[in-house]
Design a protein around this nucleic acid. Structure first.
Length: 294
DNA sequence: CGTACGACCTGCCCGC
DNA sequence: TGCGGGCAGGTCGTAC
């Protein structure tokens, strides 16, 4: 589910709610997500305080006192749900949602972890498909963690440039779409934003990465940054049920130009072609066969 | 080393 | 109405 903009949205919500708060205890309701949940998680983190919350790629990094950091990945269906007492927004939500975000939420199917914080706040980690994962790391060893160690640069930072892409794509004959979704090359881009960025840059998703000229790469860099920034501003994309931690949906899906728009007309000015959907490496790929020929 | 592809897991939607 | 197949925002392990 969540790509960089969605994780950023969740991250911002957590900063507003649990930063500087103490974890009272954590309930682990099943032993494994994608991988085993760290043993004795509760005894290791109870009574520690959250001192920083960051996003790296699609990971959430929740730094605690005592040199510990919780690493959390939401996989395809992971959601974080904040419940707290006197939650004013609740009144505006529909009944069903009110039950989900109510402080007295009854643990539901797929609520795998429940973090209890001081000041009447709880965080539920719900993940239907369990492709998500959690680990506990000593903060000073964070960058050596196997999940972070091989990640490419953040696409919104300066190091992500056309010069960089030229260098790493030199020997990659793989198609450009798979290349930008490979987290070793650049981190945080998933299926939606890969499709959207390539459309904006007018690059065919099938084009070999090492055959793109500098002009195209400059264009690609600009498009990726621009699409991601707009999506973050919109609070991410809500396809099925992605919401921020308080249940508010993002609205970037309203700005999709290709994703999930098969057979609809291309949005580029003057283009009357219809968006096509084809499979690349097992992932649905949406593109305009006219604007994205090369 | 780079690339291709199945596996992991659950639920929903569509066509028959 | 019921069932089976295909599909979903991600990543890893294995085989070539």
């Amino acid at each position: 589910m969540p790509e960089l903009p969605e994780v950023e949205t969740v991250c911002n919500g957590l900063k507003d709610s649990i930063l500087n708060k103490k974890i009272l205890f954590v309930e682990v309701r099943r032993p494994d997500l994608r991988w085993p949940i760290p043993k004795n998680l509760n005894s290791k983190i109870k009574n520690l305080r959250v001192i920083s919350i960051k996003r790296r790629s699609k990971f959430l990094l929740i730094e605690l006192t005592s040199d510990l950091t919780i690493l959390l990945h939401l996989g395809m269906s992971g959601r974080i749900i904040l419940v707290k007492k006197k939650f004013q927004t609740l009144e505006t939500l529909k009944k069903k949602k009110r039950d989900i975000y109510d402080y007295n939420r009854v643990p539901q199917k797929h609520d795998h972890l429940i973090f209890h914080f001081e000041k009447n706040q709880k965080i539920f980690y719900n993940d239907t498909r369990r492709f998500g994962a959690i680990d506990l790391v000593e903060t000073h060893l964070l960058n050596n963690h196997k999940w972070l160690k091989y990640l490419g640069p953040e696409p919104l930072e300066e190091g992500f440039s056309s010069k960089y892409l030229q260098k790493i794509f030199r020997k990659k004959s793989i198609n450009i779409k798979s290349a930008i979704m490979d987290q070793k090359n650049v981190s945080g881009i998933g299926n939606i934003y890969a499709c959207e960025a390539l459309w904006k840059a007018e690059i065919s998703p099938f084009h070999p990465a090492n055959k793109l000229n500098e002009k195209k790469l400059i264009n690609l860099i600009y498009s990726i940054k621009s699409v991601l920034n707009q999506a973050i501003k919109a609070g991410g994309s809500s396809l099925k049920d992605f919401t921020n931690i308080s249940g508010e949906i993002g609205y970037f899906q309203n700005n999709f130009n290709v994703y999930s728009r098969e057979n609809l007309e291309c949005n580029k000015k003057g283009c009357i072609a219809k968006i096509k959907k084809l499979n690349i490496s097992g992932r649905s790929t949406f593109f305009c066969p006219s604007c994205q020929k090369k």
